[in-house]
């Protein structure tokens, strides 16, 4: 049993990473990674929604019939998103203002829905919750990584404004790695998002290849 849980954790965080392996949830991945801080915040919000909605779907899995499952899933996700949206507006207002439109858009992020359909709808409560949480944390790792690369290349800082968005405790994370005028502005603009994501997918393939694993050549092409 412990082994199954380890697999769920490893799958979510790395092997089957939502962004780098399955290529799901691309919109916030590109839009909210102009800095590592934004990526981290966006990832955590998504992880909270995924963990909560996986738990709910697993709890009601015997009551949800096959025909109406997709609308039910979407409504559950939409409710969780509304809760996160209101909570962030109240307690993390600075971060809420930065993420803006992309908090309600977690509803139409394919990653939560894909995990509900593929895992939570058929699993007991505990593994489903763990899967939602770990997939969400894997998403957070990916977004933070993309954000870090873009931020370092674009403005020379790392985790800038972390203390402003998360609270004064996170002041120690703010770093300046390059002088202020060394940044390549393009990396923060939209083209940089596509470029860095593409290159990091290649990096993950390279690491998997080094580890002697079979690399996945195709992403989740069928998901719109």
């Amino acid at each position: 049993m412990a082994n199954a849980y380890t697999n769920i954790v490893r799958d979510g965080l790395w092997d089957n990473n939502g962004v780098f392996s399955m290529l799901l949830g691309m919109c916030p991945t590109m839009a909210m990674t102009t800095s590592a801080t934004n990526g981290f915040g966006m990832g955590l919000a998504t992880a909270a929604v995924m963990a909560a909605s996986s738990l709910l779907v697993a709890a009601f899995r015997n009551a949800i019939t096959q025909e109406v499952r997709i609308p039910v899933f979407i409504l559950i996700v939409a409710t969780m998103v509304t809760l996160v949206d209101l909570a962030m507006n109240a307690w993390m207002h600075e971060l809420y203002k930065v993420l803006g439109l992309f908090i309600p858009l977690i509803v139409s992020n394919c990653l939560p829905l894909a995990r509900l359909e593929a895992f939570a709808a058929k699993a007991p409560i505990v593994p489903a919750f763990l899967d939602g949480l770990c997939m969400g944390l894997g998403f957070t790792i990916a977004l933070t990584a993309i954000g870090a690369v873009r931020e370092i290349a674009g403005s020379g800082t790392l985790f800038a404004d972390a203390s402003l968005l998360f609270g004064p405790f996170f002041k120690f994370m703010e770093l300046r790695l390059l002088p202020a005028d060394m940044g390549v502005l393009m990396m923060i603009l939209p083209p940089g998002g596509f470029l860095v994501t593409g290159l990091l997918v290649v990096v993950k393939r390279l690491l998997d290849l080094r580890a002697g694993k079979e690399i996945q050549m195709s992403g989740a092409h069928a998901v719109a």
């Binding site: 290529l23 939209p190 083209p191 596509f194 470029l195 593409g198 997918v201 290649v202 393939r205 195709s218």
Partner: peptide, 21 residues
Amino acid sequence: RLFAGPPIGFIVASLLAMAFM
């Protein structure tokens, strides 16, 4: 081989985004 599929797609999209800028 490592770029086949989505990665090269992203890089092409990046160039397209630059053109649209």
